[in-house]
Design a protein around this nucleic acid. Structure first.
Lengths: 319, 319
DNA sequence: TTGAAAGCGCTAACAT
DNA sequence: ATGTTAGCGCTTTCAA
């Protein structure tokens, strides 16, 4: 075994570095994975990416990062570009369209869906959270506080979290026999500006709701900004609960009550799952679903008893 | 030129996709760049990365993302791994040590430094902000408010922003003849927990300062959390000014006054600069320095006139 | 205009 | 234990 030593020495002396391109060409393996998220600027995804990175690094994998900007077309382009460049992909699809699923299957590479599904759910590995359960927690919390006139600001219904949070929330209302007046359920776009505009619209209703559930963090930031701009007191005039923790949520005015969930753990889990796939575990797709938790802070107050009829339609101060 | 058409057709029909590894092996070009940041979870870096991505994508470049975790050793490993994998690198060095610079030069690939410098500044392309100027703005603002007993929570002095913000701030104090009592200047680590602990330590001083300048966003979040936990009123008891905007700064309690600066523009600029290098512009290294701006919100109040001596050393309520 | 072939740097299989 | 060689899939040069 003296040869091995001599080789090591020569590598050292000559500063030899193997060339990844040549290695890949020969071995058909890149030791790289792609992570495709809608927006790295969303703290949730930043955290997820960090979780992915922590595992990837440990295993010697490199990460290609892509922003789809919540745009299916852009996402298609990205997936197409991935061919031959990575061993696998962790993807948060921009929408649930079967097209997205088809494109992925066409790319024929190990894939783990993260936070959202697409195509036929049973065909993909995925790491998700219990959105329905989380939204239901929020609904029950608001109901238990006495609110019956609740606004719901949803994400796009053609995304998994958009649809399931919507469904989970409304299911509880229905189950408890609470019916929402028109204009109470608004579909927005998971973006801050969307939340802002939607909140404005909701405030302009003849009698605004007494509480709002906002289905993600960015929209919730927009809602908060709108309420701030319109000088609506939270939770005095309006209770607010968000989905996804915001980094400084506890320092906000008031500290924000939210449905929280694991973030970097989700990323780490996704990477581990992908690693298994790469190791050739051809088992049938796994769906891992993580639990949410209700983080009670101070943005929700008990509903003041409401007059059964409000003759002149003006708001009355509450709580 | 009928051949060209026939080829296109065949590509289409056979679903032919060139193999990046083979292309790279032959052409010695990867159409990939690395972005190495201390922490993608820091909203500042997330935004920077998004800026890089916006340009990269447009030019058909792919981005490898790496987290150095503010750790020079880890950063070394990353840089070493980059060999042959990317055409260039955009890097925020973990520290300013010449070692980091040497490693980069050894890697011998087009490099753009972002936000921080290392090695001999004149040898690298860099996109920076005017940290000294920004810190000076903060100092002047606090001084003009009447504060003379000011706490300074700095980042590591072996990083560019850590050192220059420290220097810029103290230079103004000196220039105005303000001398700081012992314990007023604390070195921390740019992390939230570090800010938290440092703030606690500062509050424990016999007579805490009347205002604090915090040299980055994460530490500032920690400071705010500490003040919140200790029930210290801002700006009633203590004025706070941060460096780097926080996403929800205006919704905080109170809205936070900060030194702001461009973020995604900084990333976009860095990528454009790198693109120039890759295009073979062998011009001598360029340093681009962007301006900061003072964003006045509500976390700083005028200093109450202070009794020249404070016999029993207890705090008096202010403003 | 079209076709043939060399070679990028590595790995793995084979022969010595 | 050591040395030789074919070939991964592409680009580019040179020949026809």
């Amino acid at each position: 075994m003296r040869a091995a030593e001599r080789v090591r020495q020569a590598i050292e002396d000559l500063g030899f570095r193997p060339q990844p391109a040549a290695q890949s060409l020969k071995s058909r393996v890149t030791r790289s994975v792609a992570v495709v998220v809608p927006d790295i600027t969303n703290p949730y995804f930043a955290s997820v990416v960090k979780g992915v990175d922590s595992i990837a690094r440990k295993e010697g994998y490199n990460i290609f990062l892509y922003n789809s900007e919540e745009d299916g077309a852009r996402e298609s382009g990205i997936i197409a570009d991935l061919y031959g460049r990575v061993d696998g992909v962790i993807l948060t699809p921009a929408d649930e369209s079967p097209a997205a699923g088809a494109r992925l299957e066409a790319a024929r590479m190990p894939t783990v869906l993260l936070d959202r599904e697409c195509g036929e759910p049973e065909r993909f590995n995925a790491v998700l959270v219990d959105n329905e359960g989380g939204a239901a927690q929020a609904a029950r919390y608001l109901l238990d506080l006495g609110h019956t006139d609740i606004g719901v600001i949803c994400g796009p219904l053609n995304t998994t979290p958009g649809r399931t949070r919507h469904d989970g929330f409304l299911a509880v209302l229905e189950q408890r026999g609470v019916e929402l007046a028109p204009g109470r359920v608004q579909i927005s776009d998971f973006r801050e500006e969307g939340g802002y505009q939607t909140a404005l619209r909701m405030l302009a209703l003849e009698t605004p709701p007494t509480a709002i559930f906002v289905a993600n963090n960015l929209m919730c930031a927009g809602v908060l900004r709108a309420l701030h701009d319109m000088r609506v007191g939270v939770p005095g005039e309006l209770s607010v609960i968000g989905f996804d923790d915001l980094h400084l949520a506890e320092l906000l005015d008031p500290p924000l009550t939210v449905i929280g969930r694991p973030t970097d753990e989700q990323g780490a889990l996704a990477m581990r799952l992908l690693l298994n796939l790469l190791a050739g575990e051809a088992a049938r797709p796994r769906r891992i679903v993580l639990d949410t938790r209700l983080v009670i802070r101070e943005s929700c107050a008990p509903a003041a008893p409401r007059a059964p009829a409000n003759p002149n339609g003006t708001r009355r101060p509450r709580a």
